[in-house]
Design a binder for these strands. Structure first.
Lengths: 351, 351
DNA sequence: TCAATATACTGAAACGTTACAGATTGCCAA
DNA sequence: TTGGCAATCTGTAACGTTTCAGTATATTGA
């Protein structure tokens, strides 16, 4: 018989990954006892518990995920559901880092579940739930009446949304206060004497479109400034479209003297469109933009920015899902991130 | 007895997810037969096979991943290993989309495994291999003598690297031809009469640092231009550092009249640094930069760009790992992406 | 002293899948 | 007729884990 044949108990070759059976053999206990000792079950003697845990640590035991998952249904997986066409570049990378930061010292893995324009956004969520592929889900591009949230609420699977819903249903979320952002931006521009403001909106249909538009409108009437409608684009449009439409806008007689943009990439296009018409940023028009990385000031120093931290969003969302999975009240897992004040140009790094 | 109690065979409640047992019950066959019929095993009758597959499709049977994984060890998971500090934003999002595009119609899931500055880059890879968490791994920031590639080669786990190694070992990779990029950039600048060129390099230690530097040096001597050493920064440095060091560089007597930058974010900082000293892009100095999204021309129209497609890289890498898993020769799963020509400003979208 | 009870541990079964080692049937050659 | 063989199908075991239903021993109360 081959000398390296694996024993029924324990390992002779020391090559295979240790299992509960290995631990049971080494400690002289039953696998049940070992299993319970590792999870601090009450009916295990204190010394036995310590002994088992010591040995487990020594030989680097790690529970087999497939075993656990098959037996308990627990996947130890969080899924981040992303739209492969319309998510912002910076959003994807930062939110992933934020999530991984939080789950780093948990047994959780992060899987990325994509969907594209052609698909119903509900598809990937349905897949995840039906196949039981994740213990928790994070979705973005949240809508006021979001079928995905409704579905997951029905099926009882923990999730968190980036952005709020407005369905009268309670669930964890993290959101940036876009109402406040738009308001601050308007007040800032008004404070500089700008009177005719235009808004580059978030995608129509998403909840924060409403927040932004309302913040904009409320602040406009508060400061007594006027709106120049600019409904032909949103930040979901291509750079080229935004640039062209901005140029069209700026050639009108009633062109705005202040523009507020909901995303950095759109802002680049807006500025290009402005300059295409020969107008000058800071003289003819001022622009306030949200950004998620410190790049816009390099682009044009005349830009005003408000920072939105997507890495924080990722962390908060991960914490929220884990909290729900861990049994906390969904209602207690909601957070709203306040915008920074509007920041003007400042010189970095130089002495 | 509760009426909704689950039968030993089949489902009465029709609420649970179908398994092989469900299928076996419905077709009147044994689970073994069903299992084999679903994977087109040869010893199953043609009609039985069709019948089983029909029923399976009808009731939406999906193999339980945990069951398969426990039994076979196959995880159906590809892991993308990312550095949470130094990866480029655009890299992360595009490469993820590229990968998901390819694995979309396979049973594979993508998990993101992060590591940070404080950790040995080998750690996450070791974790993946030791716990058997993935069938294939994709790594970036590849080094000429890469311990991760060496390790995975030893352990026999399929992987692909973004960037090449130089260890005399064969493995799948996808790379951008940075030697060609640097060469093209030099020739372009020389063609405009630029004679003293500086290079903002990739991170020292990565393989493509060498490729870039060599392409730069070879082309310099080919066209008879000179190098202005600029070794105090790489694209891994912060925006602020690059900006400051560029300004220092541009204040020297022997300042360059042409700069080549290996990444778009660094280019923003370089341009800012140039302008901090009162010099003008296009007049005093020309800059050629790599970019992965069409943004630099919006930034300064005088910039010259070469496009690198990270989404393509993601797809190629995914194809490569899947190929290796599927039994193809590692040596046949290598691809090199040629740079586009150097592109000057052009106006988009306008009529 | 005896039963009741608490304490510490254990084997067997089950989750869903695949691989192994048959079992059954029909057909053909000798 | 019989033996052999191909074509189809099947039960059992195993992957590693947790849960269920115990068992054995010591401790307690009366």
């Amino acid at each position: 018989m081959d000398r390296r044949t694996k024993d029924k108990d324990g390992d002779t070759s020391a090559k295979e990954r240790p299992t509960l059976k290995t631990l049971a053999f080494m400690t002289g206990l039953g696998v049940t006892t070992v299993s319970r000792a590792l999870k601090d079950a009450p009916e295990i003697g204190a010394e036995t518990r310590r002994r088992v845990q010591l040995v487990a640590k020594q030989i680097g035991y790690r529970p087999n995920r497939a075993g656990v998952r098959l037996r308990t249904g627990k996947t130890n997986v969080i899924s981040l559901v992303l739209n492969t066409e319309h998510e912002l570049m910076s959003f994807v990378s930062d939110i992933i880092y934020g999530v991984t930061e939080v789950i780093a010292d948990t047994p959780y893995h992060l899987i990325v579940t994509p969907y594209s324009r052609s698909q119903d956004p509900l598809d990937p969520v349905r897949y995840l739930v039906e196949t039981g592929s994740a213990d928790g889900v994070i979705i973005s591009r949240t809508q006021p009446d979001d079928p995905r949230a409704r579905y997951m609420l029905e099926r009882g699977i923990p999730f968190a949304t980036h952005g709020r819903t407005d369905m009268g249903l309670v669930h964890p979320y993290h959101d940036f206060d876009n109402y406040a952002f738009a308001g601050e931006a308007v007040r800032h521009l008004a404070g500089m004497g700008r009177r005719r403001l235009a808004l580059v909106t978030p995608p129509v249909g998403l909840t924060y479109y409403g927040h932004t538009v309302n913040g904009f409108a409320d602040a406009l009437s508060e400061v007594g400034a006027g709106e120049v409608p600019f409904n032909t684009v949103s930040i979901d449009h291509t750079i080229e479209q935004i640039r062209m439409r901005t140029a069209q806008l700026m050639r009108r007689d009633d062109r705005p003297d202040g523009i507020i943009s909901s995303a950095a990439a759109a802002t680049l296009a807006v500025v290009a469109g402005i300059e295409d018409t020969g107008l000058k940023l800071g003289r003819d028009v001022d622009v306030v933009s949200k950004q998620s990385s410190e790049l816009l000031h390099l682009f044009r120093r005349e830009l005003f920015v408000v920072n939105e931290n997507f890495r924080l969003a990722g962390s908060e969302l991960a914490r929220a899902v884990l909290g729900w999975i861990g049994g906390k009240e969904p209602g207690s897992l909601q957070s709203l991130s306040k915008p920074s004040e509007v920041l003007p140009y400042r010189h970095w790094g130089g002495q």
